[in-house]
Simulated scan of single mutants.
Amino acid sequence: MSSINISHFTAWITIEGTNCPIYALKSTTNPRDATCWIPSQEGKKFSVNWSNKFRDRPVHAQLSIDGVVCSTHFMLDAFRYPDDADAIGISYATTSDYTRRDFVFDAIQVTVGEDDDAYLYTLDNPPAFGTIRLELWEANIDQIVRAPFQHRYGGEVLESQIIHETSKKAGAHHVKFGGEYVVPQATVNMVNGTRKGTAALATFTFNYRPFDILLAGGIIPRHAVKAEAVDERIHDLEVQLATLRAQQRAGITPTRQPKTDWRSDPRTGKVVQVIDLTDL
Protein backbone atom coordinates (compact mmCIF):
# COMPACT_ATOMS: atom_id res chain seq x y z
CA MET A 1 0.00 0.00 0.00
CA SER A 2 1.29 3.45 -0.86
CA SER A 3 -1.60 5.87 -0.22
CA ILE A 4 -4.14 6.92 2.42
CA ASN A 5 -7.82 7.41 1.61
CA ILE A 6 -10.20 9.55 3.65
CA SER A 7 -13.64 9.98 2.11
CA HIS A 8 -12.96 10.96 -1.53
CA PHE A 9 -9.51 12.39 -0.72
CA THR A 10 -6.27 10.46 -1.28
CA ALA A 11 -2.73 11.38 -0.17
CA TRP A 12 0.63 9.76 -0.85
CA ILE A 13 4.38 10.44 -0.81
CA THR A 14 6.74 10.00 -3.74
CA ILE A 15 10.51 9.89 -3.25
CA GLU A 16 12.27 11.06 -6.41
CA GLY A 17 9.33 9.97 -8.52
CA THR A 18 8.68 6.58 -6.91
CA ASN A 19 5.64 5.92 -4.71
CA CYS A 20 6.73 5.39 -1.12
CA PRO A 21 5.21 2.40 0.72
CA ILE A 22 3.26 3.10 3.92
CA TYR A 23 3.16 0.98 7.07
CA ALA A 24 1.07 0.75 10.25
CA LEU A 25 -1.81 2.72 8.77
CA LYS A 26 -4.46 3.54 11.34
CA SER A 27 -7.33 5.92 11.91
CA THR A 28 -7.84 7.90 15.09
CA THR A 29 -11.17 8.25 16.90
CA ASN A 30 -11.91 10.92 14.29
CA PRO A 31 -12.79 9.23 10.97
CA ARG A 32 -11.35 12.26 9.16
CA ASP A 33 -7.85 11.63 10.54
CA ALA A 34 -5.41 8.92 9.51
CA THR A 35 -1.75 8.31 10.28
CA CYS A 36 0.97 5.97 9.01
CA TRP A 37 4.75 5.48 8.82
CA ILE A 38 7.03 5.80 5.79
CA PRO A 39 10.75 4.96 5.38
CA SER A 40 12.73 8.14 4.68
CA GLN A 41 15.85 8.07 2.52
CA GLU A 42 18.79 10.33 3.34
CA GLY A 43 19.63 12.85 0.63
CA LYS A 44 16.50 12.08 -1.40
CA LYS A 45 13.99 14.67 -2.62
CA PHE A 46 10.32 13.95 -2.07
CA SER A 47 6.85 15.21 -2.92
CA VAL A 48 3.61 15.26 -0.93
CA ASN A 49 0.69 14.51 -3.24
CA TRP A 50 -3.08 14.59 -2.84
CA SER A 51 -6.16 14.21 -4.99
CA ASN A 52 -9.84 15.09 -4.72
CA LYS A 53 -11.97 12.59 -6.61
CA PHE A 54 -15.06 14.78 -7.00
CA ARG A 55 -13.93 18.41 -6.49
CA ASP A 56 -17.45 19.24 -5.33
CA ARG A 57 -16.25 22.28 -3.35
CA PRO A 58 -13.17 24.50 -3.07
CA VAL A 59 -10.54 23.14 -0.66
CA HIS A 60 -7.77 24.90 1.25
CA ALA A 61 -4.68 22.72 1.85
CA GLN A 62 -1.98 23.28 4.45
CA LEU A 63 1.21 21.23 4.43
CA SER A 64 3.34 21.16 7.59
CA ILE A 65 6.70 19.38 7.81
CA ASP A 66 8.47 18.94 11.16
CA GLY A 67 6.07 21.47 12.66
CA VAL A 68 6.74 24.16 10.02
CA VAL A 69 4.05 25.28 7.54
CA CYS A 70 5.75 24.78 4.16
CA SER A 71 2.87 25.29 1.73
CA THR A 72 -0.71 26.58 1.60
CA HIS A 73 -2.80 26.43 -1.55
CA PHE A 74 -6.33 26.01 -2.91
CA MET A 75 -7.93 23.37 -5.11
CA LEU A 76 -10.96 24.93 -6.85
CA ASP A 77 -14.27 23.18 -7.49
CA ALA A 78 -14.96 21.37 -10.77
CA PHE A 79 -18.26 23.14 -11.41
CA ARG A 80 -16.65 26.55 -11.99
CA TYR A 81 -13.16 25.33 -12.96
CA PRO A 82 -13.64 22.04 -14.87
CA ASP A 83 -10.22 22.20 -16.54
CA ASP A 84 -8.25 22.39 -13.29
CA ALA A 85 -6.36 19.30 -12.13
CA ASP A 86 -7.86 17.05 -9.45
CA ALA A 87 -4.42 16.14 -8.04
CA ILE A 88 -1.63 18.32 -6.67
CA GLY A 89 1.99 17.52 -5.81
CA ILE A 90 4.04 19.72 -3.47
CA SER A 91 7.78 19.10 -3.66
CA TYR A 92 9.29 22.48 -2.79
CA ALA A 93 8.99 25.70 -0.84
CA THR A 94 9.02 28.97 -2.77
CA THR A 95 11.63 31.51 -1.66
CA SER A 96 10.81 34.34 -4.09
CA ASP A 97 8.80 35.01 -7.24
CA TYR A 98 11.55 33.22 -9.20
CA THR A 99 13.22 30.74 -6.81
CA ARG A 100 12.45 27.47 -5.03
CA ARG A 101 14.04 24.97 -2.64
CA ASP A 102 13.10 21.28 -2.77
CA PHE A 103 12.11 19.12 0.21
CA VAL A 104 14.99 16.76 1.08
CA PHE A 105 15.34 14.05 3.74
CA ASP A 106 18.57 14.53 5.67
CA ALA A 107 20.40 12.91 8.57
CA ILE A 108 20.18 14.72 11.90
CA GLN A 109 23.65 15.92 12.89
CA VAL A 110 24.88 15.26 16.44
CA THR A 111 27.40 17.11 18.56
CA VAL A 112 30.99 15.99 18.99
CA GLY A 113 33.20 16.67 22.03
CA GLU A 114 33.43 20.31 23.09
CA ASP A 115 30.21 21.25 21.29
CA ASP A 116 28.06 19.11 23.61
CA ASP A 117 27.21 21.72 26.24
CA ALA A 118 25.93 24.22 23.69
CA TYR A 119 23.23 21.75 22.62
CA LEU A 120 22.09 20.41 25.99
CA TYR A 121 18.82 22.30 25.50
CA THR A 122 17.89 19.90 22.70
CA LEU A 123 17.53 17.10 25.29
CA ASP A 124 14.71 18.86 27.17
CA ASN A 125 13.14 20.57 24.16
CA PRO A 126 13.90 18.48 21.05
CA PRO A 127 12.89 19.84 17.64
CA ALA A 128 9.73 18.37 16.08
CA PHE A 129 11.40 15.99 13.65
CA GLY A 130 9.69 13.15 11.85
CA THR A 131 6.21 14.29 10.80
CA ILE A 132 4.62 15.34 7.51
CA ARG A 133 1.02 16.55 7.96
CA LEU A 134 -1.47 17.57 5.27
CA GLU A 135 -4.73 19.24 6.33
CA LEU A 136 -7.60 19.77 3.86
CA TRP A 137 -10.32 22.30 4.75
CA GLU A 138 -13.44 23.46 2.99
CA ALA A 139 -12.81 27.00 1.77
CA ASN A 140 -14.63 30.26 1.15
CA ILE A 141 -13.29 31.96 -1.98
CA ASP A 142 -13.29 35.76 -2.00
CA GLN A 143 -11.40 36.54 -5.19
CA ILE A 144 -9.48 34.79 -7.97
CA VAL A 145 -7.12 36.75 -10.20
CA ARG A 146 -5.08 35.24 -13.03
CA ALA A 147 -1.67 36.84 -12.57
CA PRO A 148 2.09 36.18 -12.31
CA PHE A 149 2.92 34.23 -9.15
CA GLN A 150 3.75 36.42 -6.15
CA HIS A 151 5.66 34.92 -3.24
CA ARG A 152 4.54 35.69 0.29
CA TYR A 153 7.58 36.33 2.46
CA GLY A 154 8.07 35.67 6.15
CA GLY A 155 7.67 31.90 6.40
CA GLU A 156 9.96 29.64 8.44
CA VAL A 157 12.77 27.75 6.73
CA LEU A 158 13.89 24.16 7.31
CA GLU A 159 17.68 23.99 7.56
CA SER A 160 20.20 21.38 8.75
CA GLN A 161 19.78 20.67 12.46
CA ILE A 162 22.24 19.72 15.20
CA ILE A 163 21.24 17.97 18.43
CA HIS A 164 23.10 16.59 21.46
CA GLU A 165 24.72 13.22 20.77
CA THR A 166 22.75 11.51 23.58
CA SER A 167 19.38 12.63 22.23
CA LYS A 168 16.81 9.96 21.41
CA LYS A 169 16.54 11.57 17.97
CA ALA A 170 20.15 10.67 17.12
CA GLY A 171 20.29 8.39 14.08
CA ALA A 172 16.99 9.67 12.74
CA HIS A 173 16.18 11.94 9.82
CA HIS A 174 14.66 15.37 9.43
CA VAL A 175 13.63 17.44 6.42
CA LYS A 176 15.55 20.41 5.12
CA PHE A 177 15.11 22.68 2.13
CA GLY A 178 17.64 21.89 -0.59
CA GLY A 179 19.69 24.33 -2.62
CA GLU A 180 17.92 27.32 -4.12
CA TYR A 181 17.32 27.32 -7.87
CA VAL A 182 15.71 29.69 -10.37
CA VAL A 183 12.46 29.00 -12.26
CA PRO A 184 10.46 31.17 -14.67
CA GLN A 185 7.76 33.21 -13.00
CA ALA A 186 4.54 31.29 -13.64
CA THR A 187 1.12 32.73 -14.35
CA VAL A 188 -1.32 31.19 -11.86
CA ASN A 189 -4.70 31.67 -10.20
CA MET A 190 -3.92 33.96 -7.26
CA VAL A 191 -6.67 32.99 -4.81
CA ASN A 192 -7.87 34.99 -1.83
CA GLY A 193 -9.93 32.88 0.52
CA THR A 194 -10.34 31.52 4.04
CA ARG A 195 -10.95 28.22 5.77
CA LYS A 196 -14.56 27.25 6.41
CA GLY A 197 -15.82 25.29 9.39
CA THR A 198 -14.30 24.25 12.71
CA ALA A 199 -12.60 21.01 11.61
CA ALA A 200 -10.62 19.80 8.62
CA LEU A 201 -12.29 17.65 5.99
CA ALA A 202 -9.28 15.33 6.16
CA THR A 203 -5.94 15.21 7.96
CA PHE A 204 -3.17 12.93 6.70
CA THR A 205 -0.13 12.34 8.92
CA PHE A 206 2.96 10.60 7.54
CA ASN A 207 5.46 9.83 10.31
CA TYR A 208 8.89 9.10 8.88
CA ARG A 209 12.08 7.42 10.07
CA PRO A 210 14.98 5.62 8.33
CA PHE A 211 14.15 2.13 7.05
CA ASP A 212 16.37 0.37 9.61
CA ILE A 213 14.74 2.14 12.56
CA LEU A 214 11.24 1.22 11.36
CA LEU A 215 12.36 -2.37 10.80
CA ALA A 216 13.96 -2.65 14.25
CA GLY A 217 10.86 -1.17 15.86
CA GLY A 218 8.52 -3.64 14.18
CA ILE A 219 6.79 -0.96 12.10
CA ILE A 220 8.00 -2.64 8.91
CA PRO A 221 7.31 -6.39 9.22
CA ARG A 222 10.08 -8.81 8.33
CA HIS A 223 7.96 -10.60 5.74
CA ALA A 224 7.55 -7.30 3.86
CA VAL A 225 11.35 -7.07 3.57
CA LYS A 226 11.53 -10.59 2.14
CA ALA A 227 8.81 -9.79 -0.40
CA GLU A 228 10.66 -6.63 -1.39
CA ALA A 229 13.90 -8.61 -1.86
CA VAL A 230 12.06 -11.06 -4.14
CA ASP A 231 10.65 -8.17 -6.19
CA GLU A 232 14.15 -6.70 -6.55
CA ARG A 233 15.53 -10.09 -7.65
CA ILE A 234 12.77 -10.45 -10.26
CA HIS A 235 13.52 -6.94 -11.53
CA ASP A 236 17.24 -7.75 -11.83
CA LEU A 237 16.52 -10.92 -13.79
CA GLU A 238 14.08 -9.09 -16.09
CA VAL A 239 16.75 -6.48 -16.84
CA GLN A 240 19.29 -9.22 -17.57
CA LEU A 241 16.81 -11.07 -19.83
CA ALA A 242 15.91 -7.90 -21.75
CA THR A 243 19.60 -7.18 -22.32
CA LEU A 244 20.26 -10.69 -23.63
CA ARG A 245 17.27 -10.53 -25.97
CA ALA A 246 18.43 -7.18 -27.33
CA GLN A 247 21.86 -8.66 -28.01
CA GLN A 248 20.24 -11.65 -29.70
CA ARG A 249 18.23 -9.41 -32.02
CA ALA A 250 21.40 -7.51 -32.85
CA GLY A 251 23.24 -10.75 -33.65
CA ILE A 252 25.66 -10.43 -30.74
CA THR A 253 26.69 -13.65 -29.05
CA PRO A 254 28.06 -13.28 -25.51
CA THR A 255 31.42 -14.97 -25.08
CA ARG A 256 31.01 -15.46 -21.36
CA GLN A 257 28.48 -15.25 -18.57
CA PRO A 258 27.81 -11.95 -16.81
CA LYS A 259 29.62 -11.25 -13.57
CA THR A 260 27.56 -11.22 -10.41
CA ASP A 261 28.48 -9.67 -7.11
CA TRP A 262 26.80 -9.12 -3.75
CA ARG A 263 27.06 -5.68 -2.22
CA SER A 264 25.53 -3.77 0.67
CA ASP A 265 23.06 -1.04 -0.34
CA PRO A 266 24.24 2.08 1.57
CA ARG A 267 20.66 3.40 1.70
CA THR A 268 19.09 0.42 3.45
CA GLY A 269 21.96 -1.76 4.65
CA LYS A 270 20.51 -4.72 2.73
CA VAL A 271 22.72 -7.04 0.70
CA VAL A 272 21.69 -7.00 -2.96
CA GLN A 273 22.97 -8.80 -6.06
CA VAL A 274 24.69 -6.68 -8.68
CA ILE A 275 24.83 -8.03 -12.25
CA ASP A 276 27.65 -6.71 -14.41
CA LEU A 277 26.78 -6.81 -18.11
CA THR A 278 29.37 -4.33 -19.32
CA ASP A 279 31.62 -6.95 -20.93
CA LEU A 280 28.89 -8.90 -22.77
Rank of each mutant, 00 (worst) to 15 (best):
Q185Y: 03
E232L: 11
I220A: 04
E228T: 11
T198H: 09
A199P: 01
T205F: 01
V191T: 05
V191Q: 06
L214F: 03
E232V: 08
E232F: 00
T194N: 14
V183L: 14
A227Y: 00
E232N: 09
A229D: 07
T194G: 08
I220L: 08
T205N: 04
L215W: 02
N192S: 15
V183S: 05
G218C: 09
V182T: 13
K196I: 00
Y208I: 01
L215F: 07
A227H: 04
K226C: 10
A186W: 09
R195D: 04
I219N: 04
Y181M: 04
V182N: 10
V183G: 02
L215T: 08
R195F: 00
A186R: 15
F206R: 05
F206T: 02
G197L: 01
A186G: 00
Y181T: 10
N207F: 07
R209D: 12
A224I: 10
T198A: 12
L214P: 11
V183R: 10
A202E: 03
A224E: 14
T194K: 14
A224D: 13
A202K: 02
R209Y: 08
A216I: 00
R209F: 02
L201W: 01
T187H: 11
T194Y: 08
T203V: 11
E180W: 03
A199L: 07
A224V: 15
A200E: 12
D231Q: 13
G193A: 05
V230F: 12
R222M: 12
T198L: 08
A224S: 15
A186C: 02
K226A: 15
V183F: 13
Y181F: 15
Y208G: 02
E180Q: 14
Y208D: 06
G218Q: 03
T194D: 14
P221G: 07
R222V: 15
M190Y: 07
K196H: 13
L214H: 05
A202M: 03
P184I: 00
A200H: 06
V182W: 06
G197C: 04
R195H: 02
T198C: 01
L215V: 10
R209S: 10
T187I: 15
